[in-house]
Design a protein around this nucleic acid. Structure first.
Lengths: 335, 335
DNA sequence: CTGTTAGCGCATTCAC
DNA sequence: GTGAATGCGCTAACAG
């Protein structure tokens, strides 16, 4: 591996001049510049980013923590984060925490040791945040998709209440009066928000969301199936179901269909997330879409500003979900 | 950020002693050791891995190139790679090339500049490999899931021919005599291998795979749909279909079902990959499973050996796929 | 056992 | 414009 010295020697200049050429800083005579460029190409020289980082005290590295890359939601988020970060000249260390607090802790430590310029957290546990808090003044960070209880934490989040509300309004407008909600784990704040938004959407139409129509589940497809089966078991079916994510909605649809019900003729289903699969299943799934790309873009912009030390006035950004109407929702059958 | 100097000062020892404690190298008196440890904790000192990497000429960083993290196959692979690599003390820079040759090129360059200890390629283009070849003697690498035409390239790959063969044998054993294959892009070698394996599996049963029953597609769900519709259009339906991945198999199932056909009563379908969705769709999908975890494990082991400079006798490893029989396959209806 | 020192590769003063 | 010298934080070689 050639170093800057080798280039300098070959070009017959000092390493300072080579550095100036590489970084386009300072004045260099055209002649020496071309000699340096020639040497660089001849040696196939690549600057050592470790050394540069050590010297400059910045690395153009950003760490991204996600709970599960196999989850389509986070795969998507990760993809966009990476795309926008690399467009701004950052490399990304992607850390899959697997929802494991110890892994989170470890990764945070590793990222700090590797001197990342910033960190983007997505849905980490409060414990990790606590652990991380000792670094909070040392390394810029942005929290994505999850609100922290920490004041002033720079955050990009979805208006989950609105998401639930949109689902409710859509179903009410179709004429549904008997609705159910399959939630994610209610210990997660965003689930509570989605539920409350849904409840409010019904309330403004004069409909009560009865407790027996709230089924708590786990964001997984099988959880959705089980939730639907539980409803079937009561014999008291709603005419429409709102699930807190698309996977559970798929499970709900499958369970109902396996019992001979037709979607949406017998029961309408609304999901949440708008993962690509929504449009390919049949019937295609009406869902509350999360603007992942926008969230990633905002998160990256925010982090970049923080890293560059720019003054950031708005540290908490809330993005709006929107409804994508497909074929899984329809007016209820006339009773 | 405290440095080793601060620790040394606080503990009243030299930086060499601190280094010895950190790395557990050399002998240090118990007393000084505990003083150092105390200082480290007090200052919340974290070693600077840039400096260490620069000094040691190794970083414990590994770069992983995948074509598309949103694709469940690669998300899975990436997850396992990360898991096994971090278990061995490596951090991972995950690069999503988005099937873009320029991004591949860029990433390779970045990884080299960041002095990664090794690289794991998954399904990169031949062009990138060409570009990379200038580094091949400088940085250890392993090719996953795709064979290169380069001699001696360390590789972990699937026996794709066997995969096709297994699918064929299963269907033939069920009694099918009229079979079709929905392939991925045939310019990709592994698709040709899967197809040939399938053909051979039929051949040993005395069945010819007729050309009109080979439909080339694109690995996507919609591609599968279209392929099925094309078959329907000919009016000459097979009794079983083998698709080169699960997503296309889902598309095939959907298209057939939307035309009133029943899976597996009217038509059996076999997929490839064994993504988690296989067991949750209905009917659940019989498929040729790729042992992603094993591939990742072998790839990481191989790379680690290479990095450590161990002598590696077997540089090309071929892993075997296996059949997972679910509900999408059944004997054909009696003609 | 322990401390001093050199140097990894680079950007950045500061003289000239 | 240009080069010599310094130091980022660390490990390793060496001397004691």
């Amino acid at each position: 591996m050639p170093s800057i010295k080798d280039v300098a020697k070959l070009a017959g200049v000092s390493i300072a001049t080579v550095s100036r050429v590489i970084n386009n800083s300072g004045k260099v005579s055209p002649e020496k510049r071309s000699r340096v460029i020639e040497a660089i190409e001849k040696l196939n020289y690549q600057p050592n980013l470790l050394a540069r980082g050590l010297r400059q005290q910045k690395t153009r590295l950003v760490g991204c923590l996600v709970p599960d890359v196999e989850n389509l939601v986070f795969a998507r988020l990760a993809k966009y984060l990476e795309e926008f970060l690399s467009a701004r000249g950052y490399s990304v260390i992607l850390c899959n925490t697997n929802n494991d607090k110890n892994k989170e802790r470890n990764y945070l430590s590793v990222l700090v040791q590797r001197k990342v310029d910033g960190i983007i957290f997505s849905r980490v546990s409060d414990e990790s945040i606590l652990f991380m808090s000792s670094y909070f003044r040392q390394v810029p960070y942005v929290v994505l998709d999850r609100t922290l209880e920490i004041e002033f934490a720079p955050t990009v989040k979805l208006d989950n209440f609105l998401g639930g509300f949109l689902a409710a309004r859509h179903l009410v407008e179709l004429g549904h009066r008997c609705l159910a909600c399959v939630t994610g784990p209610l210990k997660i704040r965003l689930c509570r928000e989605r539920l409350e938004g849904f409840r409010e959407g019904l309330k403004v139409a004069g409909i009560d969301l009865r407790n027996e129509y709230i089924v708590e589940s786990d964001f997984k497809i099988n959880g959705g199936k089980e939730a639907a089966l539980r409803m079937l078991a009561t014999g008291n079916l709603p005419t429409a179901v709102f699930a807190h994510n698309d996977m559970m909605a798929f499970g709900v649809m499958q369970a109902f269909r396996s019992e001979g019900l037709d979607i949406p003729r017998d029961i309408s289903v609304v999901g949440f997330d708008n993962i690509p699969l929504c449009e390919v299943v049949s019937p295609s799934l009406t869902t509350v879409a999360q603007p992942f790309e926008e969230m990633a873009r905002l998160g990256v912009e925010l982090l970049d500003s923080l890293i560059r030390g720019e003054k950031v006035t708005q540290k908490v950004m809330v993005v709006k979900p929107y409804l994508v109407i497909r074929s899984s929702t329809a007016p209820p059958r006339v009773a």
